[in-house]
């Protein structure tokens, strides 16, 4: 089991959320999907640890709709 940090860790949560949604505001779904893929790849490499990444994938898949 990895040690994915699930406690609040953003230096500025509201600004992050605003930036993320702003990024997608004028994009169509295909463009958004591509951008999201890049963001995931960039961040996944930054994290690096396979156990942490798998834990994030597990939580993302199991979380309620």
């Amino acid at each position: 089991m990895g040690n994915l940090n699930l406690k609040p860790n953003f230096s500025d949560p509201d600004s992050f959320y605003a930036a993320l949604t702003e990024l997608h505001r004028d994009l169509d779904p295909d463009q958004s999907e591509r951008i999201n893929a890049r963001i995931i790849l960039l961040l996944a490499n930054h994290i690096g640890d396979q156990d942490v990444l798998l834990e994030a994938m597990r939580i993302a898949t199991e979380s309620p709709e």
Partner: peptide
Amino acid sequence: VFRNEVLNLAEAYPFA
């Protein structure tokens, strides 16, 4: 999409 974006990132970024 993931495959293509890996390729798109790979030119500039060695991690990809």
